[in-house]
């Protein structure tokens, strides 16, 4: 018996992964169920959104598919320059406001809390970590309702506290200038614990010798933070930055529950627009165009951020 034949026999006997069933390696059978779910119920519909965005799929097509027609880029024209343009550009501007102000603010707050917690002076670190993480596990809809009352102009807890401090009341959710900042504040409170934990993991992976060396050189705490901590957190920043941004582009539940996009559409977001177009008015073609725009913008922003941080690291 040749050597290769002997190996083949022993491989069969001990059941190495080369053993096939219906012509597929065992590995394939292991991944197939999950791949089928993700492929059929996520990737396929995601691609189908592109197809749907060039049709006039509406409530009539929902009843009978023969009522659907190919309309080219009409949906995009309608939202970018047609009768829906005002609302679309407002929603885009609001979403960008939320992403560009809320995102970095949330990351900064997360880093601040992580640094405070990681300090050698901190007592009861474990308990504090749980407390700061608690808002993350709460239900967004439920806490949005709570915050709607906290923000109440006449009787809300926040305005009562402001008044006690001698400040004037603010019409948080009723004033178009304050509504989006109010939602950002809620989002930061709700989310910061998540990135805080990731920053904690990043901080704990920085070798202690780096700090000792910096301390020997007589570097001040501020310089140690600037020259040791921040550069060492580079990969964490990239991860946190990209995931936070993608998440913030999906703003939906807060305006849906708290403001319905108002006042004066000042909190109307892209996903809210997509939802109302698609599932309230059943214009799925037009809503798909919004979804495509959302995806393109998210992707472009993620790639831009990766490029910027690569350059900063180089």
């Amino acid at each position: 018996m040749s050597v290769s034949a002997a190996t083949a026999v022993s491989a069969r006997r001990v059941g190495l992964p080369s053993q096939r069933w219906l012509g597929l390696a065992p590995g394939w059978w292991f991944v197939l169920p999950a791949l089928a779910v993700i492929g059929v119920f996520f990737l396929l519909p995601a691609v189908a959104t592109l197809a749907l965005s060039v049709t006039d799929f509406d409530i009539y097509a929902l009843a009978d598919l023969r009522n659907m027609r190919f309309v080219g880029f009409d949906n995009f024209r309608r939202i970018l320059a047609g009768e829906q343009a005002d609302l679309f550009w407002q929603a885009l501007a609001n979403t960008c406001y939320f992403v560009l102000i809320g995102g970095p603010l949330s990351v900064a707050v997360s880093l601040g809390f992580a640094l405070l917690l990681e300090s050698k002076l901190t007592r009861m670190k474990g308990l504090l970590r749980v407390i700061f993480f608690a808002p993350v596990v709460t239900t967004l809809v439920a806490v949005s309702i709570t915050w709607r009352y906290l923000y109440d102009r006449d009787n809300g807890l926040i305005n009562n506290a402001l008044e006690t401090l001698g400040l004037t009341r603010i019409d948080w959710l009723g004033d178009p200038r304050w509504a989006m900042p109010s939602i950002i504040l809620l989002a930061v409170w709700k989310n910061f614990g998540y990135n805080m934990v990731i920053f904690l993991a990043g901080l704990q992976s920085i070798p202690g010798e780096l700090y000792e060396a910096a301390a020997l050189d007589g570097a001040s705490p501020w310089r140690r933070f600037w020259h040791v901590t921040l550069p060492a957190l580079g990969p964490t920043f990239l991860f946190v930055g990209v995931t936070t941004m993608i998440g913030y582009f999906q703003l939906f539940a807060e305006p849906y529950v708290m403001t319905r996009g108002g006042p004066e559409n000042s909190t109307y977001s892209l996903v809210l627009l997509m939802y109302e177009e698609g599932f309230r008015w059943w214009r799925l073609g037009a809503a798909s165009a919004v979804a495509v725009v959302l995806f393109v913008i998210t992707l472009a922003a993620a790639m831009a951020q990766i490029a910027v941080q690569r350059r900063a690291a180089a």
Partner: peptide
């Protein structure tokens, strides 16, 4: 487990992480 196409499939999955779930919702419905 070793099987043909494993690493390619995994890379496709990782790339798909940037697709927001909302992008799939309308056809999914």
């Amino acid at each position: 487990l070793r099987f043909r196409g494993r690493d390619t499939v995994f890379k496709v999955l990782l790339a798909a992480l940037v697709v927001p779930v909302q992008a799939a919702m309308l056809p999914l419905f």
